[in-house]
């Protein structure tokens, strides 16, 4: 029956940040799982909720401060316009490699069968309502509900 042979069957991915690089990492991992026939569910918590907030999801930025891989002095990364510039450059590169924008990516995930959950606690904290979020969310869950979703052999959890 459902014997665990080490095979990955389901990815439960928790997205807690709204910087573009983290959002894309979580989305690519979820989509990549589906492409391999692995189930995938995304849990949006804390700042990660911005990735599914209708008014905010088109305006996510790359982090230029505290990110050593940007290869620029931290002081420079903090200058006005730096984040916008880095974001602009990253979006251009992503278009080149056929990477969808955040909204289109959510549509792709949904069509691919990825479940999208919003964290109840974070919703309460930021005073977000269900209608503030992407229309095709699967619902609002507590942490306990989310863990329950991950029941079964071969489930892995990832925190982004």
């Amino acid at each position: 029956m459902s014997q665990d042979n080490g095979e990955v069957r389901k990815m439960m991915i928790i997205l807690s940040k709204a910087t573009l690089e983290n959002v894309y990492a979580a989305f690519v991992l979820a989509n990549g799982a589906r492409m391999e026939g692995i189930e995938a569910e995304l849990f949006f918590t804390f700042f990660g909720l911005e990735a599914v907030h209708k008014k905010k999801l088109e305006h996510l930025h790359v982090a230029t401060v505290g990110n050593p891989a940007m290869h620029m002095p931290t002081m420079l990364g903090g200058l006005p316009g730096m984040e916008a510039l880095a974001t602009h450059m990253m979006k251009k590169e992503m278009e080149r490699i056929d990477m969808p924008d955040v909204h289109e990516f959510l549509d792709i995930l949904k069509a691919s069968g990825v479940k999208l959950w919003a964290c109840k606690l974070a919703m309460d904290m930021f005073h977000y309502k269900r209608e503030d979020l992407y229309d095709d969310m699967d619902g609002v869950l507590t942490v306990g509900d989310f863990y329950k979703q991950g029941t079964g052999a071969g489930t892995h959890m990832l925190f982004v």
Binding site: N31, R34, M35, D98, P100, E104, I108, A111, S112, G113
Partner: peptide, 17 residues
């Protein structure tokens, strides 16, 4: 890619799955 399939006009992603 899955994205291209979705834009193909032949099949959408949901039906493809």
């Amino acid at each position: 890619s899955i994205r291209r399939i979705g834009k193909s006009g032949v099949v959408d992603i949901k039906e493809f799955y």
